[in-house]
Amino acid sequence: MILQTALLIGLVIFSVLAIVLRDLLKSAISLAVASLLLGIIFFRMKAPYAGAFEISVVAGLITVLFVLTIALTKSGDDVRESKIANWVFPLVFVAFIVIDALVMKSLLGKVPALPAAAEAGGFGDVLWRGRTLDLIGQIAAILAGVFAVLALFRKKDKHE
């Protein structure tokens, strides 16, 4: 229970960091840590499908794409955000925490607990035996991402 609570608090902290940090690289890494924690939570809640995909896709693939994109982007183009943006997130976040504390517990109590599906197995088993077609889809998504980065950051030759 303590571990679970710690994981959940860590998840929230790193998710918030991913949003509020101004340095894009730190923000991307915070997101990766958050999703790693979420993946662990999924595994602990006996949902290896969700855990496997959370860790492989969000913590792995997407972070690689983010870091690659950040590396390819020139720094120094400061974009000014409106001041409202600085206020909106904390306000919404606090409001959410309040609602969560007051309402969610009773609301979630009304949803029947589902029996854990028989889907236990190792990380490899889940990906390879359980979701092979999605693995092909994931390869395709990675290809699409890589080609997109290559296309969008190419040197424009004749078109300019």
């Binding site: 077609l133 889809g137 699409a144 080609f147 997109a148 296309a151 969008l152």
Partner: peptide, 19 residues
């Protein structure tokens, strides 16, 4: 959903292809 995203990711880049 996975293949929907595959097609979508490729299409975002293709829409922006002219840069």
């Amino acid at each position: 959903y996975v293949f929907l995203e595959v097609a979508a990711i490729a299409s975002y880049a293709l829409v922006a292809f002219g840069l």
